[in-house]
Nucleic acid binder design. Structure first.
Ligand SMILES: [Mn+2]
Ligand SMILES: [Mn+2]
Ligand SMILES: [Zn+2]
Ligand SMILES: [Zn+2]
Lengths: 150, 150
DNA sequence: TAATCTATTGCAACTGGGTTTCAACTTACG
DNA sequence: CGTAAGTTGAAACCCAGTTGCAATAGATTA
């Protein structure tokens, strides 16, 4: 049993169950990893974390579960400017979208919420008559520390 | 000789030459393909087009040239929501950044320039003290036609 | 609780976009 | 020209992600 039964189901798990999807041990484990992540994780990091809870989990199950969560709009997929390889990163979809800033020197990722961003998405929906399902704004550049220290 | 000598060098080629880079036949050919593209092209499309002008060109040269153009900030790399595979798309960096909208039903890509987008980038630079080198805003959703016809 | 039905899993093989290596070849420059 | 450093093509390679399929395990029903 990977998770103690006392574990509260978590929002992701509750959301998937309410949509009538089967809840397996593997899914519960992967969901808990995604849900409690403190940073953006790629698929292999999610696999490693999941295996600490349930060593038998296969990477194909991680990919399939990430695909499921994506299709249901429960997580967002990020590129983070593909600074090291072509891998993708994941995070729980937040209540309010945010912008990702990737420092090209130190690699740090910062997040930023902005009313202007919300207004811009509103403008796109209105003026382009385009119904937005998912949006991703990523910028690459240099953070304050790196600009100062060089 | 892939291109007629009467061909005006083109902005990309002029830019690279002004930075002291060697101008080879292959580079000239690939630059002309990127420069005259009417839509966003992926690496294999660029290779196919380039081979029509210079059949000996290898795909590794396309990747190397795209890397060069990226490093010099002369082209932008797009994901276009990775709607079919993990490939990337390229376009000449425009004077003014634009947003890409990808319809998840018909696959059409639309572009949109917005003053709000420019202001948002200004806000990021000021409030986050982050110097933006490259920015990418992509949204996925449903275009007007697809919303109407279903 | 057991039977059933169907979705999900793990394994292994595969795909495809992109990279590395290196000898041969160009390019730019004096 | 002759030279030296940068660039190329070919082949092998890498690695994130996918596919096919038989075995397994949720959910539902009796
Ligand atoms: Mn990508
Ligand atoms: Mn564009
Ligand atoms: Zn930094
Ligand atoms: Zn459409």
């Amino acid at each position: 049993m990977p998770l103690p039964q006392t574990e509260v189901p978590g929002r992701l798990q509750a959301e998937l169950m309410s949509r009538g999807l089967r809840m397996t041990h593997q899914r519960r484990t992967i969901l808990s990893v995604v849900e409690t992540a403190k940073q953006h994780l790629d698929a292999s990091q999610i696999l490693r974390q999941a295996r600490r809870l349930d060593p038998g989990i296969d990477r194909v199950t991680v990919y399939r579960t990430l695909g499921l969560l994506k299709r249901h709009g429960l997580i967002d997929e990020l590129d983070l400017m593909h600074m090291q390889g072509e891998k993708h990163f994941y995070e729980r979809r937040p209540q309010r979208d945010h912008i990702h800033m990737a420092c090209l020197r130190c690699g740090k990722i910062a997040e930023f919420e902005s009313d202007l961003f919300d207004r811009l998405k509103g403008q796109i929906q209105r003026e382009c008559r385009f119904h937005i399902v998912v949006s991703r704004l990523e910028v690459g550049g240099y953070c304050a520390e790196c600009r100062a220290s060089n």
